[in-house]
Design a protein around this nucleic acid. Structure first.
Lengths: 359, 359
DNA sequence: TTGTAGGCGTTATCAA
DNA sequence: TTGATAACGCCTACAA
């Protein structure tokens, strides 16, 4: 457009300089008065405040202040581009809630940054479309489950942005808040094995959105752990179905495929509660009883609000705490510390969806 | 671990001026080259790019650019402080998805701003804790359902921020994307009345978080419409239970109270699908069959992933479209237009949770 | 207690 | 095609 006038036609908004001029003081004094950040005599302060009111001055411009201070009060959260699905996962809801609570306590807010849709080459330099690095932010939290991080993290770090991972990535030089995924899967398999299950269908989180194979993220870690644990059972057999995204519909579709196979697996081990809910629906749609005909396990321990006293057997993880912990790592890194990664505890929660393998 | 101190270790990050100096050109030319926003000779461009690479220049600083341009590429979404619950509402998920999609198309992102927790006086000047007006943003989308807006909107407008409402507030001088709440409730009541229901329990969204009574938001509008419509039935009787927040647990608690009363209402009209799910759970917990003993209706038309072929009777509203529409209003207002409010269509969807009133 | 000076990093304007 | 200049609005040493 060319006109050097970013503002509205109605004349510009009052600025601190205007206030200072009107009050007959210098801009620096006005700044002190407005921010309460220095000694100002009562009379001067009042004159300044009066001038501010008269001119309709609404406080310092956030952008200008950010430029000057080097901080803008924004923490980015990099999530899957499938926002609609990401938000429908109660585990993500709790995570965001925890994050927002902690960063909000210091006056910062969360900037939601979906990864680019349909990034062909995840390792391309602009896997993030250049967008992430052109938005104002003090720090970025990478929620690894469902993210192709590509060259994102190095670029953010080079910029001086604080980066914290959730559930990954490992070995990227950033602190990560995570859980023992492998341990959790092993517990589930052991539980099923104890009930006599040998033929287990695995409904996995989307591998396509995982980090690179050599630095596996949540989906690959859980898949590998499940294959290994099931394969180690005497007579153990696992069949893998990989979802396109973490959604109930996907769980239902994949579980349907697995349950229609012959012989039918006696248990389904889903890698999220959301996928597990889909498994339950698939079983119900086929008239199969749970756990009579087939056992189902999830992972996350969120409240799915299942009807009639059904409780999912799952691995509980502290999602809200995860968010709060990630926020604390962010804040301490912004304070100049170099926080270490954190591993949070999980627990097997046995519900009503697992039982003895049918004969 | 390791040596990741890309920040202050070697001094400041490379700036455009550094690149220009290294390439032996002026800052303005460097800017043109870096942004591709003007005529630069091939040779000069290459020298500049080489210098940028050498110095590790990563592109313009977003904050400085924002200050200069007067735009920062951030659209705030003001939501209930109960983020954990807000996000667990599939209707909010769809709304955010739609919003993110449209604003993302022009390179902007969403800034999540929860309203202040426990604001005593919603009309106080700093009902937003001063936070909203101290964060960088080009526009704000106020999701009215569950928000005390207080003095927020006037303050944002005074700042020159574009403001768009979703579901309200009416008459605040900002364009609003909404639906016909009253019409929807009336359709539901008519449907129930046609099935013989006269004694109807109403499970309402949190009024406490509503806008001022004289400019009612979604909760009050739906409550008023329900009272009026039920009261207009011959022999019609309504009982009201108001939730503290929009969550399944709340619906369950309130529906429990209503169902335990004598005489028991023959139908529950919940003002959101999430609350309705709670109603279904409460009925199940009491061994009441739906719709045999009690009918249940919701509002929103989201997919609750109910088990076993249960489908909620509800009012469908186009949540994703709502988000996309709000985004379009934002973008056109940022372009200098003065967009009008939009009313989106709804439709009654009859499921399996409503049936004839028991004798 | 107040004012002066300088700069945060970028980009629009205009002249060369 | 390039460069000099001037903001954008604010804040903080430092000086008075």
């Amino acid at each position: 457009m060319g006109t050097d006038r970013p503002r509205r036609a109605t004349g510009r908004r009052a600025t601190l300089a205007d206030v200072a001029r009107a009050a007959g003081v210098s801009a620096s004094t006005a700044s002190l008065a407005v921010n309460g950040s220095g000694p100002v005599s009562a009379g001067t302060r009042e004159r300044i405040q009066a001038a501010a009111r008269t001119l309709g001055y609404l406080g310092p411009d956030p952008v200008a202040r950010s430029l000057r201070r080097g901080r803008c009060g924004v923490v980015a959260v990099v999530v899957s581009d499938r926002l609609g699905y990401a938000f429908r996962d109660p585990m993500m809801a709790a995570l965001l809630d925890g994050l927002a609570e902690e960063v909000g306590a210091v006056g910062s807010s969360l900037l939601l940054v979906p990864t680019q849709r349909s990034a062909e080459d995840p390792d391309a330099g602009d896997a993030d479309g250049g967008r992430l690095t052109s938005l104002p932010m003090d720090a970025a939290v990478i929620v690894d489950c469902g993210i192709r991080s590509g060259a994102l993290i190095p670029r953010l770090l080079a910029r001086g942005t604080v980066v914290v991972g959730v559930d990954g990535p490992q070995d990227a030089g950033v602190p990560v808040v995570g859980i023992d995924d492998e341990g959790g899967v092993q517990e589930l398999v052991a539980h099923l094995a104890g009930l006599g299950h040998r033929d287990i269908g695995v409904v996995a989180l989307p591998l396509a959105l995982d980090t690179a194979p050599d630095a596996p993220g949540v989906p690959r870690r859980r898949v590998a752990a499940a294959s290994a644990a099931i394969g180690a059972l005497p007579g153990g057999r696992s069949r893998l179905a990989v979802s396109e995204w973490n959604a109930v519909e996907e769980g239902e579709r994949l579980a349907g495929d697995l349950l229609d196979a012959t012989p039918r697996p006696t248990a389904l081990l889903a890698h999220s509660d959301v996928l597990a809910l889909g498994c339950l629906r698939a079983a119900a749609a086929r008239g199969l009883s749970v756990p009579g005909d087939v056992s189902v396990t999830g992972f996350d321990g969120v409240d799915l609000h299942l009807l009639q006293g059904t409780a999912l057997t799952t691995i509980e993880q502290p999602s809200g705490l995860k968010g709060r912990t990630a926020a604390r790592l962010v804040l301490s890194a912004l304070d100049g510390a170099e926080p270490d990664s954190v591993l949070l505890p999980t627990a097997l929660r046995i519900g009503t969806t697992t039982g003895p393998a049918p004969a």
